[in-house]
């Protein structure tokens, strides 16, 4: 007999990349998110790195970069950026995510 854990392991797990692949998204060439590096450097919590549900934020050699193409447009990073380093505008009309089952 299998343990509960073994039984439940049968459920398929998708990586975040696979999940993002499922999202219909018309990607713009222009980023709708910009980061003010000067302000960003002073930030103590860097919560953008963990709050983004698309894992769009990454830290490279002390600098935070954003892969705006993966953005799900929730805006959480903008709100959590308490110092205001992240400038977040809605993607231009017609661009960005297209949810079906929201």
């Amino acid at each position: 007999m299998k343990t509960l854990e073994q039984e439940n392991k049968q459920n398929k797990k998708l990586s975040i990349e696979d999940k993002l692949f499922l999202v219909k998204n018309k990607k713009d060439k222009i980023s709708h998110i910009t980061i003010n590096k000067k302000i960003c450097k002073k930030c103590q919590h860097k919560a953008c790195l963990i709050v983004c549900p698309a894992k769009s934020y990454e830290e490279n050699h002390g600098t935070i970069e954003v892969a705006y193409e993966n953005c799900l447009e929730c805006g959480s990073c903008r709100v959590i950026c308490t110092d205001g380093a992240i400038k977040w505008e809605n993607p231009r009309g017609g661009f960005g995510v297209r949810f079906k089952n929201g």
Partner: peptide, 12 residues
């Protein structure tokens, strides 16, 4: 069990 992910979404 057996459910297939069709879409992944986020909102505030």
């Amino acid at each position: 069990k057996g459910a297939e992910i069709v879409e992944y979404m986020a909102h505030m």
